[in-house]
């Protein structure tokens, strides 16, 4: 792996420490902009190695109920793209090293304007982008301005991505490759650990980029199992569930969502750190 951005530095450091990273997902502005800002700012100290921040969208086609609801909560609370950027900028006042990757769907980016989006994201301190509905067939429109602004465009690889297609998907990618470990939506089924290792090996034959694995990883134990075979484990819906559980029927907090998420992320991080690496990391490996 090359590059000197935060993502590259973070994966090099993880490699040097001989462990896989924990990528934590929450939706920006969930359950409201104030709580969300506080929640994200505590993620590095709680144990997140990389922060994946969702840009809420009204129609998140690849997401299960947990993240759909998170999007709707954030939008109802008035979240906008500008607020998402402001949230990243707020994090950067206290943490300059933890990479932030924005995840979302193309339409809000397109409406914002791809050039302005890439520039404003970079200025706020964003490091990479995951755009779910932008396969390589369509991604040039965003990849070019993103690259110009110094942002990594993370590639998504699915179980349905066959060997013939794989180079086309990971070839233009930078930052890392995100392996979607199940054919399904977020927060539903979990892949069998035995299926993940060969998939990661298959992707490693095609790219030297680090490989993060997500979808269906819900517990510290599952995190540890994935951390043993991949460069990072992504946990999303299970964290978002902690937020939902701390809210009353009218959506206002009845418990402390920040503390609840913090404790859970700490447990996940312990899981990630407990893993014995079975394969070399992507950094300079193979």
């Amino acid at each position: 792996m090359t590059g000197n951005g935060r993502l590259a530095r973070r994966f090099r450091r993880l490699s040097a420490e001989g462990r896989a990273g924990l990528v934590t997902f929450v939706t920006a502005g969930d359950p409201n902009p104030d709580i969300s800002r506080e929640m994200v700012c505590q993620l590095p100290t709680a144990g997140a190695d990389i922060i994946e921040l969702g840009m809420p969208f009204s129609d998140p086609m690849a997401d299960g109920p947990a993240i759909q609801q998170a999007s709707l909560r954030a939008l109802r609370a008035g979240q906008t793209m500008a607020r998402t950027f402001a949230q990243v900028a707020a994090l950067r006042t206290i943490d300059t090293e933890t990479p932030v990757v924005l995840m979302g769907y193309f339409n809000p980016i397109y409406r914002y304007g791809v050039d302005r989006f890439a520039a404003d994201a970079a200025t706020a301190g964003v490091d990479g982008l995951i755009v779910v509905d932008l396969p390589p067939e369509e991604h040039d429109e965003l990849r070019l301005p993103a690259t110009a602004a110094g942002l990594d465009l993370v590639a998504l690889v699915a179980p349905t991505t066959d060997d013939a297609r794989l180079p086309r998907v990971v070839g233009p990618a930078s930052g890392f490759v995100y392996y979607v470990s199940i054919a399904g939506i977020t927060g539903t089924a979990s892949a069998a650990a035995a299926d993940i290792a060969p998939a990661v090996t298959r992707i490693r034959r095609t790219t030297g980029l680090p490989i993060a694995v997500g979808f269906g990883i819900r517990t510290p134990e599952q995190t540890a199992a994935v951390a043993a075979v991949a460069d990072a484990a992504v946990v999303g819906s299970a964290i978002v569930d902690r937020i939902a559980e701390s809210l009353g029927p009218d959506g206002t907090p009845v418990a402390d969502p920040v503390a609840s998420v913090g404790e859970f992320v700490a447990a996940l991080a312990a899981g990630a750190r407990s893993a014995q690496r079975r394969t070399a990391s992507g950094a300079g490996a193979e």
């Binding site: 779910v132 509905d133 932008l134 396969p135 369509e138 991505t161 399904g184």
Partner: peptide, 11 residues
């Protein structure tokens, strides 16, 4: 165009 998740692209 084809603005779909990678999982669906092969389909």
């Amino acid at each position: 165009g084809r603005y779909v998740a990678e999982t669906l692209m092969p389909l």
